[in-house]
Simulated scan of single mutants.
Amino acid sequence: MRDGIEQTFAEHPRPKLIYPFEQGPKTGEAIDVAAGLKWLRMPLGGALAFINVWAVEDGDGWAIVDTGMGGAATQQAWRQAFAGPLAGRTVSRVFVTHMHPDHIGMAGWLTRKFDCRLWISRLEFLMCRSLAADTGREAPADALNFFKAAGWDEEALETYRARFGGFGRALHALPDSFQRLSDGDEVMIGEHMWKVVVGSGHSPEHACLWCPDLNLIITGDQVLPKISSNVSVFPTEPNGDPLTDWLTSLARIKTRVPDEVLVLPAHNDPFFGLHARIDHLIAGHERGLARLRELIAEPKRAVDVFRALFRRQIDQNLLGLATGESLAHLNCLIARGQAVRTRDENGVDWYRAAA
């Protein structure tokens, strides 16, 4: 799960979104949000507490969209759902918006239990398999050098070594095959056509599902109402520019999907106000980039710039997220020609505003 740290948007309040439901479903229960579409929640623990998942009538079965984190608690929640609001139908297909464990973690369990197919974009499936393969490995030198370059001290690097490979432990064993989702695909689920709208930045090829007939869109983590999804640079692509991908794909979604849709996000509650939320997310990151550029008038390491982007204190548990997001903003400035990076004799990177 890679949801973002609340950023410094306080000086620009969130838009007044409309939340049509007074409360969400309890574990094992469901709420009807549209004809043939049910809203369920799977437990996560931690600050977010749960993830929203969706069941769509699909002929004689249910098409499930997102699955929750792998583990006994989520498995029990699904068993309650199948004994309760989803009883009487099998699962026909499992759709996953993207590869993070809170979304794909139970996909293997569901597809094997009901002998059905996983539907996911190709890059998400392959990247998930790649990360799951790290389970049990020692932290590679490339990753340690990456975080050393960001300014991590030896204690932080040692913590990273100890935690490395944890991604796969949050997954039930992945299916061995999948049905590919691509941007622009039109997929019949039950009686309605759903359009695939792909975003990127938070993950490589994140698939949102938009149903014009029902006037709603399942956005996964691509558009959330109260938090900004994590957009990070990782050791696998140290010079990547995911923030530009993120901002570009948000703007593109605004041109393709009408404002009046009901937005079904992975976290928090369904809402109306898609375009206003997209505008707020884009503007917030642009303000963060402007603050960051001011801060690096004098050279700074990645770990020195957190105050330009985050309103909360960054502790050891948030260090990886904060570093990844800071590097995403710094790499974006470099791509725009507004910053330069130099590496010192100790292998540490320093960033400063371009003249």
Rank of each mutant, 00 (worst) to 15 (best):
A328T: 07
A308C: 12
C332W: 06
A355C: 11
A143E: 07
W194Y: 09
V233Y: 06
A139Y: 06
I104H: 08
L264F: 06
R122Q: 15
A132D: 13
T255I: 03
L17I: 10
L110Y: 02
L247Y: 03
S200K: 14
A34W: 05
K16S: 12
G70K: 05
P265I: 13
M69H: 08
T236G: 08
P140F: 09
F82T: 10
D153P: 05
N239Y: 02
Q179V: 12
R89K: 13
S200Y: 03
R41F: 10
T255V: 05
W54L: 01
H192I: 01
E298S: 09
W350D: 12
L174S: 05
A143Y: 07
N230R: 09
D349E: 15
I278V: 12
A47R: 13
P15M: 11
D279Q: 08
R161T: 10
A156S: 15
G61V: 01
L327G: 04
L274P: 10
L181H: 01
E138Y: 13
P140C: 10
V56M: 09
E298F: 03
S182H: 06
G136A: 06
R336L: 12
D3A: 07
Q338K: 11
L224W: 06
I5P: 01
N230F: 00
L224N: 03
A302I: 05
A322V: 08
G61Y: 00
D279G: 11
V223K: 04
F167P: 07
G59W: 03
H98I: 08
W78S: 11
G240A: 15
G24P: 07
P25V: 12
W78P: 12
L131V: 09
P242C: 06
N268M: 13
G288R: 10
L48C: 05
A266L: 04
D279N: 12
S203N: 02
M106C: 15
E124P: 07
L309T: 05
A339Y: 04
R2H: 12
W78I: 14
L37S: 09
A47S: 14
A35P: 10
G166S: 15
H275P: 05
R256S: 07
A283F: 13
D58L: 02
G201N: 02
T159P: 05
T244N: 13
D32Q: 15
A34H: 03
R93F: 01
R287W: 07
E325K: 06
L118C: 02
G199N: 05
D213W: 00
G288Q: 13
A30Q: 04
I218P: 00
R14V: 02
C332R: 14
R341G: 02
V223T: 08
G59V: 08
L131Q: 09
A141F: 06
T74P: 09
H172E: 14
A150Y: 00
A276V: 10
M193Q: 08
R14P: 01
L321C: 03
W54G: 00
L333E: 00
E260I: 07
K300E: 12
P140G: 10
I104P: 01
T219A: 09
E158T: 15
G184A: 03
T244M: 09
R129Y: 07
T8D: 13
A355Y: 10
K148E: 04
